[in-house]
Design a protein around this nucleic acid. Structure first.
Lengths: 201, 201
DNA sequence: ATGGAAAGCCAACACCTGTTGCTTTCAGGG
DNA sequence: CCCTGAAAGCAACAGGTGTTGGCTTTCCAT
């Protein structure tokens, strides 16, 4: 039985209700203006029940963003656990798409709010990249610090590119972004080594 | 007369009182647990006066972090307005130092809070890098989009490295970080071109 | 099926927020 | 030096927050 299934039906139901209500509200108003009352009311759940599941609305946001992004990403990856060109490409395009969605679908007026959501996305990305590289046997594997530094640099470089592309150049396509970012990443000595090592092509 | 000097003495005084009180409180407790009341009380300023200057505590934080970081950075730059190896090196080390200070000096338990501060630092960094490159006449100057993309990638790559180094490898030195990051940045085609173009050495 | 544990509901609390309308003060131009 | 308008003080408000304790409902393991 999957770990998730072990959890009491009521708990899963309530969490899903809260998450759905939250996402629905996010499409209508800014995160800042959404109150715990709003979420509870929309989810048809008592307000104090909200606090039984999340310490505050930030915790709910954290959870909702991480989950939705992770699902979106996993659905697009050709292979879920290796550091390949195709996976990296899918990662870049998924991030770009998600960030674009934050501008379109959600009413996040504040730049600071977007940063909050995006930092949750980054937690997922860093985790995924770390896992990819942990299993690999590239040169970085010998020195964990170098590998982790490469992960940090790569992840945030992709972040910067995706968020710039989504925000400042909305008419661009995901493919174009990937095409532009790849030469930059491959220019990085560490990541280039790792890519060459693990690239199945 | 400097623009800052034009402002009413009382305004500057009150803002400084609030900023100092805020920084002092940050050394004692987490940002989350600090209330506007706390800040106003510590600054010996009426609470509603706070709202005459900042929309909320986030705005004050934004202002305080940006100002302190900008000062710290400007004091270290050999030359304030060109994209040189020395400046980039100073930038990396200042960021690393600042992020390290956030762990030590402040009680920011939450990772999400740190992200909030760091995003303010990034606003300054991106602005500075943009200015450096806007005046330069490197190959990136021909295509603004490529240049801006390079700025985004470079800034966030440095961010990732600095924040990783400060958080996960606290015993490392700033010099070591810079030494490790530089080969990575110079590996990036765009930035490498720009660096070569403007490097006075 | 059933008893107990877990989850949810409810009301009420002390507190913080952001805003308003008013008065008092004082910095700085004339 | 004095006047004036901007800035600071003040009190009170309608909200939202996060927590508590007691109660009812629902699940699910025996």
């Amino acid at each position: 039985m999957a770990a998730e299934e072990r959890i009491d039906l009521r708990v899963r139901r309530t969490r899903k209700l809260l998450q759905d209500a939250f996402l629905q509200l996010m499409a209508q108003k800014s995160f800042q203006s959404i109150t715990v009352q709003d979420i509870s009311a929309a989810a048809m759940v008592n307000r104090s029940t909200f606090y039984d599941h999340f310490v505050d609305k930030y915790a709910l946001m954290e959870w909702a963003v991480s989950e939705t992004f992770r699902e979106q990403l996993m659905a697009r990856l050709p292979d879920t656990d290796h550091y390949t060109v195709e996976n990296l490409r899918a990662l870049i395009m998924t991030m770009w798409e998600y960030f674009g969605g934050l501008h379109g679908q959600c009413q996040s007026a504040d730049e600071q709010e977007r940063m909050l959501f995006q930092s949750q996305v980054m937690n997922v990305v860093i985790k995924v990249l770390s896992d990819w590289l942990a299993t690999g046997s590239g040169p970085g594997a010998e020195d964990p610090i170098t590998r982790e530094l490469a992960v940090a640099v790569t992840s945030w470089a992709i972040y910067g590119a995706s968020q710039y592309w989504a925000e400042k150049n909305p008419q661009g396509t995901g493919e174009e972004l990937a095409d532009r970012v790849f030469p930059i990443l491959q220019g990085m000595p560490q990541t280039a080594c790792l890519l060459r090592e693990n690239d199945p092509s």
